[in-house]
Design a protein around this nucleic acid. Structure first.
Length: 379
RNA sequence: GGGUAGGUUGAGCAGGUGGUGAGCUCCGCUGACUGUAGAUCAGCCGUCUUUCGACUGUGGGGGUUCGAUUCCCUCCCUGCCCA
C-alpha cells in the first residue's frame, strides 16, 4: 500500500521565457497550466452555481480559511462531509490560509510572532489564527491544496518591517509543515519580501528549501507598479528556475497580468477581479473592457462578445444586460459573472494554445492592445 | 361655492416667521476595483466656465421696502374637508 500523494505534476518548458505548459493532478481532478482559479471565498463563487462554474470551464477554485471558519466554521463543514460535498463542487479546491485577511483586515487584527488575533467583522468576537490552526482548519475543510499562514505587507513600508514580516512568514512556514494534517492534502509555501529584490531572493530560496508541494508568490498586486511586480517575478523565477514544483502567483490578475507572469514562469493564478468587476457591470471582451451600465448600450442588440460562447453571449444582448444592471435585477450579476469567468478561462486556454504553437507574442500583443484602452464603448 | 394644507433644481424632501436658499435622498452620467467585510465605492448631477468663479432660481403677475422665499393684493394649480 503506497502513501497517498497529494498532488502530482509535470511541466514542459516552452520557447517563451520561463513559461511552461503543465498538468497538475489533485485528489479531485486534473488541470492544465497555466491556469486561472476563480475565487469562492465563502464556499461560493459569488452569483454562480457549481453547474455555472463547470459550464464556464472552471477546473480548480478557491475558498477561504478565515471566512469559512468564522461562518459556518470548519468543524461544521467537516461534520457535513467536507468542503467539496458542502458546496457541491467535485473539482479541486485550494484554500487560502487567512493570510490575505491579515492584510485586508489590518485594522481588525493584531499580529505577534505566534499568530494573529482577529476581531470578527461579523460579530466582534475574537478569533485566534496560528500557522497550526490555519492548517487544522484547512484539513477540516478538506481542500486539495492548503496554503500556509503568511504575512503580507504594504510594499511601501520600511525595509526592516518588510523583512520582519518575511522572516515571520518563514518561521510560520516551518511550523505549518510540521502541523500538516492529512496526507491527501498538498501544502504550498508562500514567498514574501515586498518589492525588495534581495528579500525576495532570500525568501524564494528559503521557501524552496522546504518540502512544500508547490511554491506561491504572495504580496503582489497590493499597490506596487507593474514594473515592480515584473521585477519581483523575475527575481523569484530565477531562484526557482530549476524547481519542478508548481508556481502560484496569488491574487493576480488582470488579462494583461497573466501574460507577463506566465512568461516569468507562473503556472497558477487566482483573482477576484473577473467576478468582482462583473458584479459592478464591467465585462471583459476580446475588444477590451466594457461597462454594461453605460447608457449607449441600452440600444445595442449585439452580444457582450460575439466570439464568446457563454450563456450571456449566446442568449442575451448588451441591451438586455444594460437593462438588468439598471434595474438591479439579480440575473445581471449571474450573467455578467458567467461571462467574465468563461472569457477569462477561455483566455487561459488560448494562452496555453499560443504557448504550444508559438503565437504567444501575438496573443499577448492583441490582449494588451485591447486592454490598454479605457473601455470599449461599442462594437 | 366655502374652508384648509400646500406649490423649492427630473422625482421626493429639508430649509427659510425682511438681510447671501444650489443642502439631502432617489433617478441620471462617468469612473474605480487584483490570495472578496465589496450586487460595493468614488466623482459629477440649474446655466456658463478646465479651475477659480460668475449668473439664475422658492407657481405666475403686481405691490410695500434700501433689500422679499418671507409681508400685502391678485390669479393659476394640487390634496383634503364641508356644501
Amino acid at each position: 500500500m503506497s502513501t497517498p500523494v497529494p498532488i502530482a505534476y509535470s511541466f514542459t518548458p516552452t520557447d517563451v521565457g520561463r513559461a511552461r505548459l503543465g498538468r497538475i493532478r489533485t485528489p479531485h481532478g486534473e488541470l492544465d497550466t497555466p491556469q486561472f482559479m476563480p475565487v469562492g471565498t465563502q464556499a461560493t463563487v459569488k452569483a454562480l452555481t457549481p453547474g455555472d462554474l463547470r459550464g464556464a470551464g472552471a477546473t480548480m477554485i478557491l475558498a477561504n480559511t478565515y471566512h469559512l471558519n468564522l461562518r459556518p466554521t470548519a468543524e461544521r463543514v467537516a461534520r457535513l462531509g467536507g468542503l467539496h460535498r458542502f458546496m457541491s463542487w467535485e473539482g479541486p479546491i485550494l484554500t487560502d490560509s487567512g493570510g490575505f485577511q491579515v492584510f485586508s483586515l489590518a485594522d481588525r487584527r493584531r499580529v505577534d510572532d505566534d499568530g494573529v488575533t482577529f476581531v470578527s467583522h461579523l460579530d466582534g468576537s475574537s478569533h485566534r489564527l496560528t500557522p497550526e490552526r490555519a492548517m487544522e482548519i484547512q484539513a477540516l475543510l478538506g481542500s486539495d491544496v492548503a496554503m500556509v499562514l503568511d504575512q503580507l505587507v504594504e510594499p511601501t513600508l520600511p525595509q526592516a518591517e518588510v523583512a520582519a514580516a518575511m522572516e515571520r512568514t518563514h518561521r510560520w512556514a516551518e511550523r505549518s509543515l510540521a502541523a500538516r494534517g492529512r496526507p491527501d492534502q498538498a501544502v504550498f509555501g508562500i514567498v514574501q519580501g515586498g518589492v525588495d529584490p534581495e528579500l525576495r531572493r532570500t525568501s524564494a530560496a528559503f521557501v524552496a528549501s522546504l518540502p512544500f508541494d508547490g511554491i506561491a508568490i504572495g504580496g503582489l498586486s497590493v499597490g506596487e507598479s507593474k514594473a515592480e511586480m515584473a521585477a519581483t517575478l523575475e527575481v523569484v523565477g530565477g531562484v526557482l528556475s530549476g524547481d519542478p514544483r508548481p508556481r502560484y502567483l496569488m491574487g493576480v490578475g488582470s488579462p494583461v497580468d497573466f501574460f507577463a507572469a506566465v512568461e516569468l514562469g507562473v503556472d497558477l493564478f487566482d483573482c477576484v477581479l473577473p467576478t468582482r468587476v462583473a458584479r459592478t457591470g464591467q465585462v471583459w471582451t476580446d475588444a477590451g473592457r466594457l461597462n454594461l451600465r453605460n447608457s449607449a448600450l441600452q440600444d445595442d442588440p449585439g452580444p457582450i462578445d460575439p466570439a464568446c460562447g457563454c450563456e450571456a453571449c449566446t442568449s442575451h444582448s448588451r441591451a438586455y444586460l444594460a437593462h438588468l444592471f439598471r434595474a438591479r435585477e439579480l440575473l445581471a450579476y449571474r450573467l455578467a459573472t458567467i461571462h467574465n469567468v468563461t472569457w477569462t478561462l477561455e483566455l487561459m486556454r488560448r494562452l496555453r494554445a499560443a504557448l504550444a504553437d508559438r503565437t504567444f507574442g501575438e496573443l499577448r500583443a492583441r490582449v494588451e492592445g485591447a486592454f490598454s484602452r479605457p473601455a470599449a464603448r461599442s462594437r
